[in-house]
Each structure stands twice: as C-alpha cells, then as structure tokens.
C-alpha cells in the first residue's frame, strides 16, 4: 500500500510513486468499474509524458492509461494481468500497473499532490 501523501497525480487519473511505480487512482477504478483485461506495456518501452502505454478493459468500456511523466518501463505487474480485479480492490497497493525509470526526476513536480488532486476531482475538468 502506497503512502498517498507521497504520490503525485496526473489529470488523467494515474498516480506515480517516488520510485516510479504507476497505478490508477481510487476515483478512476470506481469510474472504470470491474476491470476484466489489462494490456501492459513491454519492458523497456519508452513513453512520453501523457503518452498512452497501457489499456484497461472493464465490463463497461476500454480506458487508455498514460505515463504520468516521461520514462522507460522497467517493470510490469504480472499479478494484475492474471487478476485484473486487483486494480479495483487495491488501486494503491497490489493493483499497481507498471514501473517507470523516470527520465527527469524534476518532471514529477508538474503533477498534482493528493490535496490538489482532491480539489481537481471537484471540477468539471476531472469528469470529461
């Protein structure tokens, strides 16, 4: 389980931990509903900030997952590929998706803190 206060958040509802671990927020998992398939990126894949790197499929729809910052995929969570429901059950824990070798540690500063994300959720921009 991640310490939420140490996470940084993207407007597309992904979080990233200081060590580069990426997942989706609790708000996002509720919006996505029951995840049934996860398409994870191959190891070593380079991603630009906000570039699409993975896909979640729920009963409801398909949802693209973006890299919160630029980096290279250094690990993927095989457990969620086998048990996609982990994303709904533990979005900040066992439901993490992949890990990024962050290209520029300073880029995390462009993201929101938990408090800022909570405020963002109250705006229309958070609910396209």
């Amino acid at each position: 389980m991640q310490d939420i206060e140490k996470l940084r958040f993207a407007k597309s509802h992904e979080w990233i931990a200081p060590d580069g671990t990426v997942g989706i927020t609790d708000h996002a998992q509720k919006e996505v509903t029951d995840v049934v398939f996860v398409e994870l990126p191959p190891l070593g894949k380079s991603a630009a900030q906000d570039g699409e790197v993975a896909t979640l499929e729920s009963v409801k729809a398909a949802f693209p997952i973006n890299a919160p910052v630029a980096g290279k995929v250094s690990a993927v969570n095989d457990k969620v590929a086998k048990n996609p429901e982990l994303i709904n059950q533990a979005p900040y824990g066992d439901g993490w998706l992949f890990k990024l070798d962050v290209a520029d540690a300073g880029s995390l500063k462009s993201l929101m803190t938990n408090a800022q994300y909570e405020e963002f959720l109250k705006t229309d921009a958070a609910h396209p």
Binding site: D34, V36, N88
Partner: peptide, 8 residues
C-alpha cells in the same frame, strides 16, 4: 447502472 460492481 450499478451499486457496487457490475460483476458482483
């Protein structure tokens, strides 16, 4: 559309 989870 759902209360807890479509699958549940």
């Amino acid at each position: 559309v759902q209360y807890t989870s479509i699958v549940a």
